[in-house]
Design a protein around this nucleic acid. Sequence first.
RNA 1: CGCGGGGUAGAGCAGCCCGGAAGCUCGUUGGGCUCAUAACCCAAAGGUCGUGUGGUUCAAAUCCCACCCCCGCAACCA
Length: 533
Amino acid sequence: MSKRNVVVGISWPYSNSNLHIGYIASSLSGDILARYHRMKGDDVVMVSGTDSHGTKMEIRAKAEGCSPKDIADRYDQNFREALKAFSFSFDKYSITYDKFHKEKCKEFFIKLFENGYIVPRTEKRTFCTTCNKFVADTEIKIVCPVCGKETKADNCDCGYVPVEKDLEGATCLICGHKTELRENSILVFRLSAFKKQLKKLLDDNKDIWRANSVNETKKYLDKLIDRDFSRDLAWGVEVPIAGYEDKKVWVWYEALLGYITDTMELGEEQGFDWQRFWKTNVEPDREKIVYMCHAKDNIMFHSIMLPAMLMGLKDNFYTNIHMVSAEYLTMNDVKISKSQGNGFEALEMSKRFDTDSLRFHFALNGPEKKDANFTLDTYAVTHNSDVVNKFANLINRTLKFKGLETLPEGIVDENVYNRVKDIYNIVGDCIEKTEIKKATSEILDLIMETNRFFDDQKPWAQFKEDDKTSFNNTIFTCAFVLANLTNLLEPIMPKTTEKLRNFLQIDSKPTWELICVKPNISLDKVEPLFSRI
RNA sequence: CGCGGGGUAGAGCAGCCCGGAAGCUCGUUGGGCUCAUAACCCAAAGGUCGUGUGGUUCAAAUCCCACCCCCGCAACCA
């Protein structure tokens, strides 16, 4: 198969709290896709970064008496450590206050303005006369006209979403004084202009998108409205249009373009043309894939906003985004003890448990099509039963067979051989359809089948009966499966497969194709890979 | 009547698009094995598939309708 140009974009975590294990669960599919495509020989860029701007950052900085950047840096460090601990194989992980990113975002903004897709408009906005500035809905409180309770103005717990007239006479949360509605100059992105193109995009892709993406996108397409791309903030990417110098761009505008700016910067660093991955007219004969991995609350931004922005640039951008939208990882047990701080921060989890085994758990039990509840008990079951008892035990009973010092030479069982040969396509198809859960389950099936094969052959009896040939064939066949598991499991459990490759003295890089195992290698390095919890 | 995802043995899930004898893992019970981290293998028990004495059909977990519950969205939180 010919090489493909693959972008894996993972949603940008927001820098106002430590990275949560749920982020790992919903983003893992991205790392699996990237690793798989690299093994297939495709050119891959896997990108993301820390989303560091926005209203919340300013509010927090004020509350904590530091700069928004201080807060961003604090969490950015946490994100990087956690993502590294979980073996996320980013080609580029940046941060949105980075100069390169800001400059490119401004260039794109000007382009959209020149193309007539960003236009000036005047609208009434909440103005605090005491603070002397326009304030965001989340910075003011109102009395909800539906339930009668006091609430922040962006939305009420009762479900009501306030409209403009409800904001009349709202109270500023910063200074406590009344606000008023004032005319404000804003810059609007004409999202509604892309309705037809976005509908076609959905039509073209609805068979491979997950159901939640398709339906959620449909909902917005029916009534697309233009969006305010400017914000009255001090912290962010400056609006590069004359007359709007005191404003910043909407965080989503620039965070979404981060996928592009990351690729551009990576291209400069590594000396390749970033357009290979994003432009239809560059390497047009190569298939392109752009995966966007995120949780369900992010759907419309990736399926509508980003493609619309790329279309608006009118520069041959590839917009056939492959939506990989996860549901939510919930933690019922955790909500109870949240006030005491819970142990479900990603970095903390990485220190308490084996990260490969957690990756395996999320690949098998993650929120792929519906919310998944995470508890330590259910994780312990996956770890002890699937990872240790089934997989690690297969390694040990094969490679640490009593008295075995070197791997005997034998003939691989024909049925096992064919099964292993076929499973590459089966698992590969699942991964390319972003059915990670099914892919993982297929691999687990192979492991269980191999344990069954082992039992059926009874190598302990073959060994005693001095049926050396049969014994050698049995062990060699199982070792052959293990060797191929170092490939098949590489996208899911990269640290473990590296250790197993080491045991089997496999020197070549992992590839998505059948490999053989070397006979007569020493087995004295083999040791247990996991401990039970 | 706002929109979307979900509700399947004690637990966690698959099956639903495209209707055709309810599957998988864990747990439980019984048996086997002794290579392996008390791991592995075989077998059994366990479900009116959220509710409906609702519709379509020869046939419904699957299609249609009504209702209930959990989660998300609802465009200035990101």
